[in-house]
Design a protein around this nucleic acid. Structure first.
Length: 580
RNA sequence: GGCCCCAUCGUCUAGCCUGGUCUAGGACACCUCCCUUUCACGGAGGUAACGAGGGUUCGAAUCCCUCUGGGGUCACCA
């Protein structure tokens, strides 16, 4: 059995760290396809906090044994998202953080499974020599047929050892062009899984079949690689998604056959969507596929997805569109993409510390009605016995409330600084449009009413449009504020009348500042609007922003600027006059 | 379907292990009122849960059993 794969790196993997039993070693081991989603982020957070709070080590390992689905870009994305959340690894792929510090490295590398093939080979050989594993030559078609047969008998298909083949038979298979996989010869005994979250569970004998440990392409399967690497990297505690719970039996029999130690396991319940479906990294694609199907589209809308990508994507439900393409397609199809990935939440302006806090609370609680805490507190207090066993729904509304609280509690300068960083990445048009002072004013004006770092930009698009291009909303609120369609009571002035009057007053102002604007408006209001500032402010707001919602009006007027404000008022007066 | 796991307000959860202090606490959402130049924030109230049925016990959200409901898993994916 000789591998034809070239090893990319092989440094360091013989230096095995002997863990101090009092210091736990945990790991987060994503497979690099798609993006880090909130479920994975929570697993990473718990694993990190568990090790950190106990003076242990936290490892990142990239499980890229599926050549078809793994990508380097995804690996980098995972690392970036983790680092952004404040989850830093003691060992793992090296990564340069935005602040310039380097995370990762370590003596137990490589931390990419695709670079550890040589190691796995040794253990395959060990297992085969001991009679714990054997070559199996079945073709995919043969296996499918066996599965079908089992299904017809209403039984679960379980592959069993079917006796050693003769050397002649083996030669024959090779001549036919067949390639063998290696299967583990699972002992037919009951297996007890010890789990610090779910408690212990015993699988009856015969539940686990002779599963594949080495694929045709020479790569180990997940089960094999995870067992070998956890042992070699000295992992003491494995926290992972509940979908792996039954798999643990496979890992246990493998560990026993290999003479490895058993880590302590903790399986975390899944995180669900509000509609009870499983929250998955494929949810966005699911939404898009549904929309495509409903519209019976046979080709991608122009400018969204390349024909090649489209074909691949349509042909295989496991294929995910990259984010940019997904966003373009969602806009073309007019459907909203659910926020699933850490990256989605960052784009939407959520704070990493809030995400961590909220994620931690989704499945764990410190007790005593404590809800708001930081990662330091989490590390100090996190324990497996307080992890919830039941699946939880991810409540974006509550997350937003947490984010709002965190933003409101932030010092003004910090809010401005972080918004600017956000804008630099996601809203460059605002950075380009405003000078330092005006940008600061926008931040100040929006701070207390912002729920995310993105909100000052998302809600104030009117600041960017040309005066000629501003669209005035023709809705109930606008009509009411302008007095359109209403008959005058006792000769009182309408909002539109106030707007016309204020136009002249504003045009004559010696300086365009909040103080000057406000005092001029107050003076006018006292005399002509019975002191009701709202009846004057709202028409102005509509004129410069197009709607009845904007930051505080005097700030808004300064942000828009004198000339633009007057031009907009003129346009608004003309527009509203025509409405009557 | 086989196997495994789970079960408190609409949602996230505290309480359960070590039965009484639980006429079940907090948070988000929702409703009412107040504040207010819009939106948002904020303030004061309010509605709202132990899945069902059996036990055990003086006493059960807490312990046991059954049912029901939910989840996970049965790949050469992880």
């Amino acid at each position: 059995m000789r591998l034809r794969i070239r090893f990319r790196a092989r440094q360091g993997h013989l230096n095995m760290t002997i863990p101090n039993p009092s210091c736990p070693v945990t790991r987060f081991a994503p497979s690099p396809s798609g993006h880090l989603h909130v479920g994975g982020a929570r697993t990473a957070l718990y694993s990190w906090a568990f090790a950190r709070g106990r003076g242990g080590q936290f490892i990142i390992r990239i499980e890229d044994t599926d050549q078809k689905r793994s990508s380097d870009a995804a690996s980098v994305g995972f690392l970036r998202d983790l680092e952004w959340l404040g989850i830093r690894w003691d060992q793992g792929p090296t990564f340069t953080a935005p602040d310039g510090s380097v995370v990762g490295g370590g003596a137990n590398g490589s931390y990419f499974q695709s670079e550890r093939l040589e190691i796995y080979e040794r253990y395959f050989a060990q297992l085969i020599a001991a009679g714990h594993a054997y070559e199996a030559w079945d073709t995919t078609e043969e296996l499918d047929a066996m599965r079908k047969e089992s299904m017809a008998r209403k039984e679960a298909f379980r592959y069993r050892f079917r006796g050693l083949i003769s050397p002649e038979q083996r030669t024959q298979f090779v001549a036919e062009g067949r390639t063998a996989v290696v299967r583990f010869r699972t002992p037919q005994v009951a297996i007890t899984i010890k789990d610090d979250v779910l408690g212990d569970a015993t699988l009856p004998a015969g539940e686990v079949d002779d599963f594949v440990i080495r694929k045709k392409d020479g790569f180990p399967t997940y089960h094999f690689a995870v067992v070998v690497d956890d042992e070699l990297m000295g992992v003491t505690h494995v926290l992972r998604a509940q979908e792996h719970f039954t798999n643990t039996a496979k890992h246990i029999v493998l560990q026993d056959a290999l003479g490895f130690r058993r880590p302590t396991y903790g399986h975390l319940s899944i995180i669900k969507n509000p509609d009870d479906s499983k929250m998955s990294k494929r949810d966005k694609d699911k939404v898009l596929r549904k929309a495509v199907k409903e519209r019976s589209l046979s080709a991608p809308p122009a400018g969204t997805v390349s024909t090649e990508d489209w074909g691949r994507w349509i042909g295989d439900d496991n294929v995910q569109l990259d984010l940019e393409a997904a966003i373009r397609l969602s806009e073309a199809l007019k459907v909203a993409l659910p926020e699933i990935n850490v990256d989605d939440f960052r784009r939407s302006g959520y704070l990493p510390e809030t995400i961590c806090n909220f994620l931690a609370l989704n499945g764990w609680s410190p007790g005593h009605d404590i809800e708001k805490f930081d990662n330091t507190f989490l590390c100090e207090r996190f324990s497996l016995d307080r992890v919830i066993k039941t699946p939880a729904k991810f409540d974006r509304v509550k997350l937003l409330a947490f984010n709002t609280d965190a933003i409101n509690a932030m010092p003004r300068e910090e809010f401005a600084r972080r918004c600017r960083e956000h804008a630099a990445q996601f809203r460059p048009e605002f950075v380009a449009r405003f000078d330092e002072a005006k940008f600061a004013l926008l931040m100040h004006a929006c701070h207390e009413r912002s729920k995310t770092l993105d909100e000052p930009f998302r809600t104030n698009g009117f600041l960017l449009v040309d005066d000629d291009a501003l669209v005035f909303a023709d809705d109930k609120n606008v009509r009411k504020a302008l007095g359109i369609g209403a008959s005058s009571v006792d000769g009182a002035k309408s909002g539109l009348d106030h707007l016309r009057a204020m136009r002249s007053i504003l045009a004559a102002l010696p300086e365009w500042t909040q103080v000057a604007l406000e005092s001029a408006a107050n003076a006018y209001t006292a005399e002509y609007a019975a002191g009701k500032i709202g009846s004057v402010a709202q028409p102005l707001r509509i004129a410069v922003s197009g709607t009845t919602v904007s930051p505080p009006i005097w700030d808004t007027l300064v942000l828009v600027g004198c000339n633009a404000a007057l031009a907009r008022i003129d346009r608004c007066v003309a527009w509203a006059s025509a409405l009557r």
